[in-house]
Write a protein that binds this DNA or RNA. Structure first.
Lengths: 104, 104
DNA sequence: TTGACATATCGAAAAATCCAGATATATAAT
DNA sequence: ATTATATATCTGGATTTTTCGATATGTCAA
């Protein structure tokens, strides 16, 4: 775990919002599921396009944000067809909260 | 509380170290107290010069770092004579850990 | 296999951050 | 009053971040 990279990832309004939105995907991305194939249950995963629409920033920006957050450990992703679904890496985030409590 | 500013303040190796050093001031700044007047008991406060020496960065940089961390809420300071003593704002940091646990 | 769509990567301009030296200010000592 | 010391503020060049449009890649559908 690289705390500096985590904090950098969290140092941006949009990225912080994305992380919060992904806590309640079905609430914040209601139309999600339209293209989510039934045979897949990537619980909580939201595709890039839906996140972009909600965040109101360019496609390239949202893509690199998500990549950055994933590299920091905050998110995980899976590709399904032409969609990439991102969701929170709750295990990592839990460790992070522990780190925060004990080390900060 | 402005989480973004907190995360920005934490997004730097030196500032992160300072925050950690200040968890155990008497251990990390052993000579501290030489100029700390007896009649003052600013528990845990360390003066700018001592922090600068330990961090090995310029005086102006350490001063603005400390100011930034204080504005973010992480530190608090008190002036005593020609010295400014900085220490952790534990109350704020505790709230922060709570915020982190519940909001992140 | 061609076209359409989702996402990733590239390249660049603008803005922000980093960090130092120079200078200003506040306090203490003489 | 003058000088010395600690800290704060100012200025600015170097580096990094932000964010976009353009382009590339991967996948599905016709």
């Amino acid at each position: 775990m690289e705390p500096i990279n985590v904090f950098k990832a969290l140092s941006n309004e949009t990225r912080l919002k994305i992380l919060e939105w992904l806590k309640e995907p079905e609430k914040n991305f209601p139309k999600q599921g339209a293209h989510l194939p039934k045979d897949v249950s990537y619980k909580g995963g939201v595709c890039v396009g839906d996140i972009q629409e909600k965040a109101q920033i360019s496609q390239s920006t949202v893509s690199s944000y998500l990549n950055m957050m994933q590299k920091a450990g905050l998110l995980e992703s899976i590709r399904h067809g032409q969609w990439t679904y991102y969701r929170r890496n709750e295990e990592f985030i839990q460790e992070l909260a522990k780190y925060f409590k004990t080390e900060i």
